[in-house]
Design a protein around this nucleic acid. Structure first.
Lengths: 194, 194
DNA sequence: GCCGATTATTGCGTGCCCGCAAGTTTTCGT
DNA sequence: ACGAAAACTTGCGGGCACGCAATAATCGGC
């Protein structure tokens, strides 16, 4: 390993990812085509999809790269605290790490939100949970549930639209909204960690 | 209401949906293009996407149509039983309703599984939960969590692949797998219903 | 250093999804 | 019954994602 091939792949991957993020910030996420990203990174459009399965994936990867280690560390750092608290802290930590501008960029677009949750949150969370709950399926289910809750929190946070009928004013800081959305899952998390 | 326009729309919608299901059963879900479905229903391919946002949506709609009322009824039917039991029964009922052949068809394809969960399960479940939990966000989160658990149950059921390292033999009946995947969420459901 | 084997890149073709702008059908007020 | 307004259908064009086969680059053994 660590041959030339490996390094080249890593280079083009980060080149694509950084080009994607830069262009998204410059022109807005909707005004950047895959061709633009590929051209900026010096590869063919076809090659782009050998590295990333969607237009959004490259953008979130720029913010994601080391997320697995981070989430795992955040969960482990909680030590023997209740699992609900460990997960909440890990999630909040994950979402306060990127630059605010980048975070806005991602949370503003539904597609980017989902890509972020799917690629940057669920897999490392499932791995981290495996060490604190007995069953593998339980870990997967809880990780998926947490991911779903985060998705909802981001959606509500990004849309201060007063729904219509009821006057549901959702606002406040992102950490608050994340913890609020995660709260209903706390009994499940703590019961599983028992 | 009940004008000519309304009836026509309903007619083409069911025509598309039934054609989609029939063709999927006949040739396999991967061997049917939206052009085929549109042609079979007598509309243009462009019109197809005015009715359904994806190739899969029309297929699942054939099995889905009345799901909202059914899920709501299943939850209400549980009366004052624990919410966890009500939800589990509703989910199992939902997934034992279609013909086995159709169910196999849907669970075999990841895209169809997800479409089924997203369009046929989460929305009605969120509505049904609203009547038993206080907060709207809590209802959304729990519905999303249950949907995620169901997705995992279906994936594990459809893949009897012995993962590799650990010898995780997942098998058994679909209802059993659904209840097993939902079990970790029971504490959250019952706590919210308190 | 050379050569066969593995692996990455690229172009091409196919299919999906959707915005937009006619053109057509239904609805509704008078 | 008529004509304007609203809603539906369709073709066109653009963008995304991917399977496939040919080409080019890299690796590993000698």
């Amino acid at each position: 390993m660590s041959g030339l091939r490996e390094r080249k792949k890593q280079a083009t991957r980060t080149a694509l990812s950084e080009a994607a993020l830069r262009l998204a910030v410059e022109h807005g996420p909707d005004n950047v085509r895959v061709d633009d990203i590929a051209t900026a990174a010096g590869v063919s459009p076809r090659t782009y999809n050998n590295y990333f399965p969607s237009r959004e994936a490259a953008i979130v990867f720029a913010v994601t790269a080391d997320r697995e280690a981070r989430v795992a560390a955040a969960v482990e750092a909680a030590g023997s605290a209740p699992l609900s608290r460990a997960v909440a802290d890990a999630v909040v930590t994950t979402y306060t790490a990127p630059a605010p501008e980048t975070l806005r960029l991602i949370t503003a677009s539904p597609a980017l939100r989902n890509a972020y949750a799917d690629t940057a949150l669920e897999p490392p969370l499932a791995a981290a949970l495996s060490s604190r709950v007995p069953d593998a399926t339980t870990a997967r289910v809880l990780a998926a549930a947490v991911t779903a809750a985060v998705r909802i929190a981001l959606a509500e946070w990004a849309q201060p639209t007063g729904g219509g009928t009821g006057f549901v004013v959702v606002s406040g800081s992102l950490p608050d909204r994340l913890r609020a959305a995660l709260a209903p899952l706390n009994p499940a998390l703590d019961a599983a960690a028992g």
